[in-house]
Simulated scan of single mutants.
Amino acid sequence: THRVLAPRPAPPKSPAAAFVSADPRIAAIVQRVAIAAARKMPILIRGETGTGKEQMARHAHAASQRAGSFVAVNCAALPDSLIEAELFGYTEGAFTGARKGGSAGLFKEADGGTLFLDEIGDMPVTLQAVLLRFLDDWTVRPVGGSKREVDVLLVSATNANLDDAIAKGRFRSDLLFRLNTLEVTLLPLRERTDFADIARHLMAKIDPSIALSEAAIQRLAQRSWDGNIRELRNVLARLSLSETGPVIDAATVDAAIGPGSAEPVAPKIKMDESAPADLHEIQRALVLATFAETGNNISKTARRLGISRNTVYRALRGKPG
């Protein structure tokens, strides 16, 4: 008798993550991230603002085939005094202002899924120690509550130089070693070879009825794109409003955004903490105006004004610089 061999199960399909990877270097990163995510390895994604770090994190979540939620946290945007409570949760009455019934916390919300810690380089040093303890046993300790174990895929991202932050004592080296089991760096848009694919993909998501001509793509590719893919998406959204029919050409690009001229640079300012309140308001107004001009881009606002990203965040929250 002949032995009948059962057919091999088909390998899991690649997740349909919307991350363009026609550039071979990006394709290799996408594959490595998928493998690490399936093995629940902590992943650290580096890259300039707007290069698609959150999209890559979502790709990791999809590749992991985890049933839980994808929970994104901007570490720089959370109030320093409440960041531990927001991440790990708290019981009712744990501190002044705690909401009735308490909060499960973002780590618990991501249980069975993925927790994405964006701007990890801006996490306060005191909280880094708490995060390091969590990575030892994957147990959350809510403020005022009892500890409980959670199952999360941890993905972190930063555009900061963590090695420099470690040298200056702003980031723990032992935490970095726990976060970067796999570390990848996304290329800036200006260095990628698949600009045309990215532009067409973004336009198809913005308005599938509009196409970009080859000349329009070439004209767009000539720009520096300091804001990377995020900036390109904003420009394409603006172009989609042009009343030029179903095809956007080079003339439409020039009319809407100019022939690749350099970005205007505002005079640098210093957010003086000792300044009187009315001057703080003037400084904050300048930050808010520049923030609006840059299409709500934190990094571009900071570059134009010569200030830190945290200063921009504080201005947006209405706090003195």
Rank of each mutant, 00 (worst) to 15 (best):
70 F>M: 01
114 T>N: 04
78 L>A: 07
11 P>L: 12
115 L>W: 06
276 P>M: 11
246 P>S: 09
201 H>S: 14
225 W>M: 00
157 A>T: 10
267 P>M: 02
124 P>C: 02
194 D>G: 13
77 A>H: 01
291 F>L: 12
119 E>V: 01
158 T>E: 02
224 S>G: 13
78 L>W: 01
144 G>A: 02
266 A>Y: 14
208 P>M: 02
20 V>R: 09
156 S>H: 01
292 A>T: 14
192 R>K: 07
313 Y>A: 11
53 K>G: 03
72 A>K: 00
255 A>K: 13
39 R>L: 12
264 P>T: 05
39 R>V: 12
319 K>I: 08
190 R>S: 13
240 S>H: 01
247 V>E: 11
277 A>F: 15
247 V>C: 08
4 V>W: 11
180 N>D: 04
23 D>F: 11
271 M>K: 09
148 R>K: 15
130 V>L: 08
10 A>L: 14
182 L>Q: 03
279 L>S: 15
18 A>K: 10
60 A>D: 03
262 A>T: 11
96 T>F: 10
66 R>F: 06
140 V>W: 09
287 V>Y: 09
248 I>F: 01
50 G>Q: 00
14 S>N: 13
161 N>C: 02
205 K>A: 14
284 R>G: 07
123 M>Q: 08
52 G>H: 00
227 G>V: 07
154 L>W: 08
33 V>H: 03
190 R>C: 05
198 I>A: 02
8 R>E: 15
163 D>F: 13
274 S>G: 14
140 V>E: 09
173 S>K: 06
237 A>M: 14
10 A>V: 10
64 S>L: 00
233 R>D: 05
222 Q>N: 13
300 K>I: 15
303 R>N: 10
